[in-house]
């Protein structure tokens, strides 16, 4: 990568012409360096992101039956199908529920764990490792174990039974299925956000709390007035990562509920997977991909805009 060194710039520059200012001003040189620095990423994005995305848009204008080998231009037909799709409402609802539930629970639990682990306690390293461990376990193994625990006669209800509570049929009930899928996913990945929060918490200067203590502020007040604003950049980062991730989750749903009961856990990615790979409607699957892309894009832009309001120290 040493070839991106800026000193290459002046070396290749032509001799200055007459009395005019040299072509390679610091600013121009900087510009070139900027482009060189981002070149690998930019070219990579063009080839492995933008081009495939463009192809997906192209597919969405076609009726593509993979088995029959037919690929026919149908214009906006797939988009008309989309507008009439009776499932779309419930799919979008499930997607929204899943994402909101996941983001709220994940961030709240991650923050709670990080605050607990940030106390002066022996053994926090051990707990930190325990909470992080699911992150490295194979997703499929993790999901299968939880599917087993969440059965009507499974471990969770067995546990509830010992304290005299009759647990619901987690994965089969309309309300509880979505909740279960969210919780399984939260436990799997909350460790990542927890570590990021923990790092942010440790960076908060202790003097701030001491000063607040002198002022007589309660612990709760200190948390909301000092901690939260100071770690708000991390909250933004984790929430973006989590929202984007939540819209792409599908293996868990495939293993735990297959979109059921009814269509209550059929989220958008799972639906587009069904349409493209199971029902062989590649064109319509591509159309749904565009919808998904649009939603993620809108949400990210929204979060990015919101950061100006509440993120404490934005440069």
């Amino acid at each position: 990568m040493t070839r991106t060194d800026t000193r290459v710039g002046p070396a290749t520059a032509r001799p200055t012409l007459g009395r005019r200012r040299p072509y390679w001003t610091g600013r121009r040189r900087d510009q070139l360096t900027g482009y060189l620095f981002i070149a690998p990423q930019l070219v990579g994005s063009a080839v492995f992101v933008i081009l495939p995305l463009a192809l997906v848009v192209w597919y969405s204008l076609h009726e593509w039956n993979v088995l029959a080998g037919t690929f026919t231009f149908v214009g906006a037909d797939n988009y008309a199908t989309l507008a009439d799709d009776p499932n779309l409402g419930s799919v979008l609802r499930a997607t929204g529920l899943f994402s909101v539930g996941l983001v709220v629970l994940n961030l709240a639990l991650a923050l709670l764990l990080a605050v607990l682990l940030n106390q002066k306690l022996r053994g926090t390293t051990l707990f930190r490792t325990l909470f992080f461990s699911p992150v490295v376990v194979s997703l499929v193994a993790w999901t299968i174990v939880w599917g087993f625990l969440l059965q009507d006669n499974g471990g969770i209800n067995g546990l509830l039974d010992t304290i005299g509570v009759a647990g619901p049929n987690w994965l089969r009930g309309e309300g509880t299925a979505m909740f279960s899928v969210v919780v399984v996913q939260v436990f799997k990945n909350v460790g990542l956000n927890m570590v990021l929060f923990l790092a942010a918490l440790q960076a908060v200067p202790g003097e701030l709390y001491e000063a607040a203590e002198v002022d007589g502020a309660s612990r709760m007040r200190q948390f909301w007035r000092i901690t939260v604003p100071l770690i708000s950049p991390t909250i933004l980062l984790t929430s973006i990562i989590t929202v984007v991730g939540s819209l792409q989750v599908f293996a868990q749903i495939a293993v735990l509920t297959q979109g059921g009961p009814g269509t209550s856990t059929t989220v958008l990615v799972y639906y587009l997977y069904q349409q493209a790979f199971q029902f062989h409607h590649f064109g319509y699957g591509a159309t749904l991909s565009i919808v998904l892309f649009g939603i993620v894009l809108a949400l990210t832009v929204l979060q990015w805009q919101l950061r100006k309001r509440w993120v404490f120290h934005e440069s």
Binding site: G260, P261, Q274, Q278
Partner: peptide
């Protein structure tokens, strides 16, 4: 023909039976 899609509809449709 189109079993996967039909199957999915039947699965979702039968859920209230259980």
């Amino acid at each position: 023909t189109g079993q996967a899609e039909i199957s999915q509809q039947v699965r979702a449709g039968l859920d209230p039976l259980w």
